Computed example of a mutant assay.
Amino acid sequence: MPEILLDINNIVFDYNKGGRALDGVDFAVASGEFVALAGRNGSGKTTLTRLAMALLKPTSGSITLQGKNTSAMTPADMAHSIGYVFQNPDRQIFRDTVAKEVAYGPEQLKFTPEAVNEAVSKALSMTGLTEAADSFPRTLSRGQKQKVAIASAIAMQPKMLILDEPTSGQDPWEAQNLMELLVGLNKQGITIILVTHDMELIAEYTTRAVVLDKGCKVFDGTPAALFDGSQDIARWGLIPPAAVALSQQLNGINSTDAAELTGLVSRAINQRRENHA
């Protein structure tokens, strides 16, 4: 049975003047999962991830990381196990070369110089940034900057990555390239929590979806179950992927995958032609 890495138990969080942001949220993330955390703006997604990183402390409830309560832990403590990637990579980038940027985290964790070099080399290779090692990070594209932020996180050798809307502001090719990178990292054993409002990404890449609405967990299951038509996801501010929306309009045809849906529609059209020949 996979190890439970992060266990969020009945979390409540109140902002001093902003009311209740989270109300009794429960879910656990096991080693090797690729989880989407979804919900409309203001649903509590970012607050929950900030709690998971010990950037905030819960009003009540508990969070455990590999069985240890995080109430007394600092963000630096959490960084040994969880890498956090902000929506805007410019918030994380401040050094003058990609290699130096990626080296910052391991240096802060007191890696030896040899271990820092090894971690940087491996992280650059895993993210396809080896040739950009000496580049000035701020001259890179948005997608490349996001990869620098991911490389900086994985250089610290975390068991889990939390990414907040990592494809925001990217063109479709960069977004696909980044998602394929995350799939590859997941296959290498890194657990992924992807904060996103993009239902297409959830349907195509993730294996589990947790949906928040008004600070409460309202769904926890597979993307297929989220989009099979049994859930009124519009009430949570979600729009189904295009392939799902189309399949729901076609009698007897159902798929969350665009390529598969194309084949099903084509076969259905040909079958109907034969039936009426």
Rank of each mutant, 00 (worst) to 15 (best):
P2F: 07
L6S: 03
I8S: 10
N10H: 15
N10V: 10
N10K: 14
I11W: 00
V12M: 10
D14C: 13
D14L: 12
Y15G: 09
N16L: 14
N16I: 14
A21Q: 01
L22F: 10
L22D: 08
D23M: 02
A28W: 11
A30D: 12
V35L: 15
A36M: 12
R40W: 00
R40N: 04
N41L: 05
G42I: 04
S43V: 00
S43P: 00
G44H: 05
R50V: 04
A52G: 10
A54M: 03
T59L: 05
T59C: 03
S60N: 09
G61R: 02
Q66S: 15
Q66K: 15
G67T: 02
G67V: 03
N69I: 11
T74H: 09
A79W: 06
I82S: 02
V85Q: 03
Q87P: 01
P89H: 02
D90C: 04
D96P: 08
D96R: 14
A99Y: 00
E101P: 07
A103M: 02
Y104W: 12
P106V: 05
E107I: 08
E107H: 02
Q108N: 15
K110D: 12
K110W: 10
F111R: 04
F111H: 09
E114I: 05
N117L: 12
E118T: 12
E118R: 12
A119T: 01
A119W: 01
K122G: 01
A123G: 11
S125L: 08
S125R: 12
M126V: 09
T127P: 01
G128L: 09
E131V: 10
F136Q: 12
R138H: 15
L140C: 08
L140I: 10
S141M: 11
R142I: 13
G143Y: 08
G143N: 08
Q144T: 07
V148T: 06
A151K: 02
S152F: 05
A153N: 01
A153C: 03
M156D: 05
Q157D: 14
Q157T: 13
K159F: 00
P166E: 06
Q170W: 11
E174F: 11
E174Y: 12
M179L: 14
E180Y: 11
L181N: 08
L182R: 06
Q188L: 10
G189S: 05
I190K: 06
T191S: 09
T191Q: 04
D198Y: 08
M199G: 05
E200M: 09
I202H: 06
I202Q: 05
A203P: 07
A203I: 08
T207Y: 03
A209V: 07
V210Y: 03
K214D: 13
C216N: 14
V218Q: 04
F219M: 07
D220W: 03
G221W: 11
T222W: 08
A224D: 09
A224M: 09
L226C: 12
L226Y: 11
S230F: 07
S230K: 14
D232H: 13
G237Y: 03
P241T: 02
A242D: 11
A243K: 00
V244Q: 00
A245F: 08
A245H: 07
N251W: 12
G252M: 09
N254T: 13
E260I: 11
E260Y: 04
E260P: 06
L261H: 04
L261G: 01
L261E: 01
T262L: 13
I269T: 10
N270L: 15
N270V: 15
A277Q: 14
A277L: 14
